[in-house]
Nucleic acid binder design. Sequence first.
DNA 1: ACCTGAACACCGTTCAAGT
DNA 2: ACCTGAACACCGTTCAAGT
Lengths: 197, 197
Amino acid sequence: MSRLASPELAERRRRQILDAALDCFRRRGFHQTSMQEICSAADISAGALYRYFGSKAEIIAAIAHDERQDSSVVFNAANGTVIDGLCLMAEGFFRKLAAGDGALVADVLAEAARDPILARNLALFDKQYVMACAEVIGAGQVRGEVDPALDPLEAAETLLAAIKGVGLRAATFGQTQLDGAAAQFRGLAERYLAVRA
Amino acid sequence: MSRLASPELAERRRRQILDAALDCFRRRGFHQTSMQEICSAADISAGALYRYFGSKAEIIAAIAHDERQDSSVVFNAANGTVIDGLCLMAEGFFRKLAAGDGALVADVLAEAARDPILARNLALFDKQYVMACAEVIGAGQVRGEVDPALDPLEAAETLLAAIKGVGLRAATFGQTQLDGAAAQFRGLAERYLAVRA
DNA sequence: ACCTGAACACCGTTCAAGT
DNA sequence: ACCTGAACACCGTTCAAGT
């Protein structure tokens, strides 16, 4: 067999196709954009595209993977308080949604809910992400910022779920109310994590 | 013009089609199920279907409408504490997700994020729902159950967003962890609403 | 009035033919 | 090796023809 001789070309073509696909998917959704649209956007023929991706589902999986990784990167700036760190991360996510990725995030959710293999792949990211978050919360507990009665792992999961819920609600119904969502989440996180009397 | 002479037949056919469509959409998603599948499931020809719905988008809109209304009904049993009321409602939603509606809920979200008309229609439901919730929280404040410093409307919005976030996360990654989601939400709501020292 | 099913332009995917 | 574009079975939608 002699397919895909040059790894550099292959990688370049894959990027070219994924960039075009992301653009289309954002606007019209996974299952409303046609392969022809992707081909046109990527300036490539249908036959050429299928040398680099076996199916539309494969492209969707790659985009979903990138989207999730993208959402996970932002959680390094844990210098300030736990609350500030969480809010910074949340704002990064809200900004992405406000920029037009709300529908894409919902698409990924829907896809993962129906495709166990994709769900498992995304869950791997998610676990890492939750654990990083839990670590920050645990550190906040030893500093006395966060109620020691909370289970850090469960608190991290709950807050990440809340971020997604608040963000998706704003993206669906919102007047691009990025600030409103951020304020809502800050209030929730502050009261949830607070040391109780 | 003489189309649709009998309202009873029309209503019966529309139900027949929507029931079949809901079944298909749950399993395969809005844009992966074909009209042929809906026609087969409804035991009706393509031509007949198009007498009662103008397009696939119209069927999707009707299903999304029903789905949202369905999620909104459960909030009457406000006898116990505010927390109990909220948790009862959350559990109703979680049960729906665990029964396999997780992907459908995500589909509706994605559809609404791209279709402003659908978004506005769903927002009407949502507003009523938020206000009912806010009223319960307000009543909790006068009973001393809920911190009077909270804005009832914002608290209602935030908690409803959190319910959706927690539920969708469980539905996407979860081991059908209905109980885990319920416990997570209860912890969040208790701490969020609590009167502070 | 109500329904059927073949027909239309278009979808995802394949593959012979080019370079 | 890499690409093109016509061809395949199927998609959403329409409409002449039946009852």
